[in-house]
Amino acid sequence: MKYFARKCGFYLVALWGALTVNFFIPRLLPGNPAQIMLGKMEMTSTPPPGEYKILEHLMGVGQGSIVSHYWAYLVQVSHLDFGFSFSQGETVTHVIYQALPWTLALVGTATVLSFIIGTTLGALAGWTRNRWLEALVPVTTFLTAMPYFFVALILVYYFGFIMHWLPLSGDSDPLLLPAWNWTFFSSALQHAILPAATLILVQLGGWMMSMRNMTLTTLSEDYVWAAEAKGIKSRRVMIGYAARNAILPSVTNFAISIGMVVGGSILMELVFSYQGIGYYLIQAVENDDYSLVQGIFFFISVAVLLANFIVDVMYGFIDPRTRQTQ
């Protein structure tokens, strides 16, 4: 319980940190970003009433000291209202609400799959010292050293331009409306295959290598050898003693890697025109749509922190030591 409380405390601090970073980002901009934004909005449409106030709060400009700006900003963010996005012609929250689930589903599924496959292969490589699995290491290392977007480019080129196999872009058939039916689902799945493959391929090597190394390290731990001495069946020793312990650092890494994968998926979404949160973030950066940028960064941070939090809590369950000692 204490562990849980401590983790809650930490992630609140981290959230506050992310919020503060987000507050200072617009200060990098020259001039008055709120004014600039309003000007851009007026060029395309009529900004909703009160929009300028919201922008002032978000960008931390206008009357008063920096402390009052900061306070106004925090209040504004606590309403989860990031104003209007001129580049998308919708409220920021609405854009995010539409895009975030796509990214979460894609990144979440792909990362978990990659973790499972990589960790299993790594455990096998470490346990059996299998030559074929060992030979995989340079290959997966090479894949791991590729930028996500480059792998995406290759996949698009090969499957799209050469094989004409899979739909190339978008997150579902543009003619289909989102609905909970098979047609929509299968279309979404088809569109997600290449992006997911990209994420899985690039991450695989890391999970595999780390699990392989940890398995080798764990195998020389006394408790594994003691289990062997007890005549416990090999399978049980491998799973209950070796893998069970070897996986712990991978779980910690899993938490940290979530942020990395989200980062990588941003560019990848661009290549596939997969309309997730990363795609919109890039659009926003390119169009100087500051409020959308701020909103998206906020939501990405929250999502990543939340994912980290969940993994940390899970870790508390699989490693009894964390619950007790600290």
Partner: peptide
């Protein structure tokens, strides 16, 4: 110290 599995009961 080291001959018991640290993560199982």
């Amino acid at each position: 110290m080291n001959s018991l599995n640290p993560v199982t009961s």
